[in-house]
Computed example of a mutant assay.
Amino acid sequence: MKLKSAIIINLLSLLLVISGCGDSHTTPKKESSSSIKEFTCYSNSVKDTFYITVQLPLNYEKEPKKRYPVVLLTDANFYFPMLAPIVHQYEKGGLLPPLILVGVGYKSFELMNSLRVRDYLYPQAIPSDEMKAPGGGQRYYQFITNDLLPKIDSNYRTEMNTRTLLGHSFGGYFSLFAFQQQMSGKRNDFKGFVSASPSLWYNNNYLFKLPDQLKRTLLKDTVSVFLSVGSFETPKEWTIQPVENMAKQLDNKHISKLKLSTIVYNDLDHMDVGLISFIRGMEKMYAKPAQ
Rank of each mutant, 00 (worst) to 15 (best):
Y79W: 08
F80R: 13
F80E: 09
P81L: 04
P81R: 00
P81E: 15
P81A: 02
M82A: 15
M82S: 15
M82E: 14
M82D: 15
L83C: 03
A84T: 03
P85W: 00
P85F: 00
I86D: 07
I86K: 02
V87Y: 00
V87W: 03
V87I: 14
H88D: 08
Q89I: 02
Q89D: 12
Y90P: 08
Y90R: 13
E91A: 03
E91H: 00
K92G: 04
K92N: 05
G93H: 12
G94P: 14
G94M: 06
L95E: 15
L95D: 15
L96T: 00
P97H: 01
P97M: 01
P98E: 05
L99E: 09
I100G: 03
I100L: 05
L101P: 00
V102C: 09
V102H: 12
V102W: 09
V102M: 08
V102S: 13
V102E: 14
G103R: 09
V104A: 07
V104T: 01
G105K: 07
Y106L: 09
Y106T: 12
Y106M: 07
S108Q: 09
S108E: 11
F109L: 05
F109C: 07
F109W: 07
F109Q: 07
F109M: 02
E110A: 15
L111M: 08
M112P: 06
M112N: 14
N113M: 04
N113W: 01
N113E: 07
N113Y: 07
S114R: 15
S114L: 14
L115Y: 04
L115V: 11
R116Y: 05
R116H: 06
R116D: 06
D119W: 12
D119I: 09
D119P: 13
Y120A: 10
Y120C: 10
Y120V: 08
Y120S: 11
L121N: 05
L121T: 09
L121M: 05
Y122Q: 11
Y122I: 04
P123H: 10
P123I: 09
P123M: 12
P123L: 12
Q124Y: 11
Q124T: 15
A125Q: 03
A125N: 07
A125G: 11
P127Q: 03
P127E: 01
P127N: 06
S128L: 08
D129P: 06
D129L: 06
E130T: 05
M131F: 01
M131H: 01
M131Y: 01
K132P: 04
K132E: 14
K132M: 06
A133L: 03
A133V: 12
P134K: 14
P134H: 13
P134F: 10
G135K: 14
G135F: 01
G136V: 04
G136I: 10
G136P: 15
G137S: 13
G137C: 08
Q138N: 14
Q138M: 07
R139M: 15
Y140P: 14
Y140S: 07
Y141M: 01
Y141N: 06
F143D: 13
F143T: 12
I144R: 04
I144S: 04
I144V: 15
I144W: 04
T145L: 10
T145N: 11
N146R: 15
N146T: 08
N146V: 01
N146K: 15
N146C: 01
D147A: 00
D147V: 03
L148N: 03
L149Y: 00
L149Q: 00
P150L: 11
P150N: 13
K151D: 14
I152G: 09
I152T: 05
I152N: 02
